[in-house]
Design a protein around this nucleic acid. Structure first.
Length: 300
DNA sequence: AACACGGGGAT
DNA sequence: ATCCCAGTGTT
């Protein structure tokens, strides 16, 4: 869950998740649809599908791998997470290199090559840190201390070098470069796309949803139809804006209410439907539009 | 090596 | 507005 996501965002999802799946066996026995529902709103939904597959693989092999190579072979476990589990769970002498460790390392050794090209050399430099005797004595603590140093002291902007325990050893600080590292190449401008979402409600406020294919954007998640699911008097409900990683979306929302939904369609209560954030915005816009329509009728 | 893949909080 | 976060998988 913490891959590319801050702790404060993850916490409520983590709590829900562990309440639903106290052990890896529970998670493996769950349906992927239920796992996706618990993940709705957290983003990067491949993580949910991979974690579920990972749990099934772990159960199938009778337990967790306890070496880096074994962990690395599991779905959703890349070089970072394999090392994080290795260091924290198994006290292996490895260093998980996350964004914090990259930044601290780039500054500590004054590495001025720009990302992402310098990622390799920064990772190699970071790995040297775990060769220290005290670090190897507690690899999990060392890694987590480094995360926290990056998150609270060696921050992306205006790092607090005055209170940094490593300031005396920091080449970036000595060179007066600390706040300029790591150097990053400017990312391409985010394109803008447009789309339409149809919100079909019944009298009990159930909304028609579709399940996305298991790969690609919002893979495996419940979403609103992009084409009208039935002929109806569709009302405009305005537009919502949403920014994805690599494009910005303007979504036009249309809404209709019918006495009963078509037979066999997926649906959920509009207020609690487990959908990605962009779809939650669309549902809220649709409900707002309907409420205003009701106001107009009452006043007329 | 480059790209696809969410969402939200900090600045 | 921009940056960036306890990154991974695919092309």
């Amino acid at each position: 869950m913490l891959q590319q996501t801050v702790v404060a965002t993850v916490r409520p999802y983590y709590d829900k998740f562990l309440a639903a799946y106290p052990t890896v066996t529970h998670l493996a026995a769950a349906s992927v649809e239920e796992v996706c529902a618990l993940w709705a709103g957290l983003g990067y939904y491949a993580r949910a599908r991979n974690l579920h597959k990972c749990a099934q693989a772990v159960v199938a092999m009778g337990g967790f791998p306890d070496c880096i190579e074994g962990l690395r072979g599991l779905p959703g476990i890349g070089p970072y997470t394999a090392n994080a589990i290795g260091a924290i769970a198994f006290s292996l002498p490895v260093l998980p290199v996350d964004g914090n460790v990259e930044r601290v390392t780039a500054r500590l050794f004054a590495i001025t090559d720009p990302f992402p090209g310098a990622k390799k050399s920064i990772t190699k430099a970071a790995e040297r840190l775990i060769e220290d005797k005290d670090a190897r004595a507690a690899p999990g603590d060392f890694a987590q201390a480094l995360f926290d140093l990056g998150a609270t002291v060696c921050t992306p902007k205006s790092p607090n070098c005055l209170i940094c325990p490593w300031a005396a050893h920091c080449q970036g600080q000595a060179d007066g470069l600390a706040d300029t590292l790591p150097v990053k190449v400017k990312k391409a401008e985010r394109p803008r796309r447009e789309g339409v979402a149809y919100v079909l409600l019944d009298k009990a406020n159930n909304v028609v949803l579709l399940r996305r294919p298991p790969h690609g954007l919002l893979g495996g998640m419940l979403v609103l139809p992009e084409v009208p699911p039935i002929m109806a008097r569709w009302r405009q409900a305005g537009t919502v804006e949403h920014v994805f990683t690599h494009f910005a979306l303007t979504l036009t929302v249309r809404v209709a209410r019918v006495s009963a939904l078509p037979e066999g369609v997926l649906s959920a209560p509009v207020g609690s439907a487990p959908v990605p954030s962009v779809m939650r915005k669309a549902l809220d816009a649709a409900c707002l539009a309907l409420n205003h329509a009701g106001d107009d009728k009452r006043s007329a």
